[in-house]
Amino acid sequence: MHIVDGALAGEVVIGGAVLAAGGIALGLRHLPLERIPAAGVLSAAFFVASLVHVPVGPSSVHLILNGLAGLVLGWAAFPALFVGLLLQAVFFGFGGLTVLGVNTVAIALPAVIVHYLFRRGVTQGAPLSAAIWAGMGGALAIALTAGAVGAALALSGAGFVPAAKLVLVAHVPVMAIEGVLTATAVYLAAQVKPDLFDTLKGRSA
């Protein structure tokens, strides 16, 4: 999942860094100071979620949940997920330093896309229909992330194309799992705290 330093072509690394910086700037602009604590604590919550391992047959996968992050955070997903990736790179050695931009775009851009496509469906209607929309969003976010990682690899050289295809195939079960988990998480949230998805809207606390 994590791309490391030295694997990608220079153009891809620089392009990813520029896109990520733009996304982070936009995300921060969408974040009034009043909402910084909520965004920061949610950023920590998604960090914790990414440390959760879910069993798949004899093995296990760790969660990304960027679809759910997009539904809750919107554009703020860019800075919130970037902070998580930065801390993981610095303290855990996951991923790398120069590829932080590419990794941020691969995770946060799908989150923002899911936000625009599925937020309406998730915030309106009964918990069950919200869960179904959220499940589609959760699965789509992983598909887009795998596609972005695959594209970053494929753009860096013809020799990477088979590895890029393997990345896509390996993420099919992850897509299904993230879809189910996002759907059930939203099903619970829609019943327990329906205004969860308005946390970062202008509402005063």
């Binding site: 909520a38 059930t184 998480a185 969860l196 946390t199």
Partner: peptide, 29 residues
């Protein structure tokens, strides 16, 4: 385990963590 019950339970668990995170952030603010 691998299966619907497990995944649904993990989903509820993560939903609960999110809800508590937001509640906590309101108290923090």
């Amino acid at each position: 385990a691998t299966g619907w019950h497990s995944y649904r339970s993990f989903g509820y668990l993560l939903g609960m963590v999110l809800v508590r995170a937001v509640d906590r952030s309101e108290r923090v603010l």
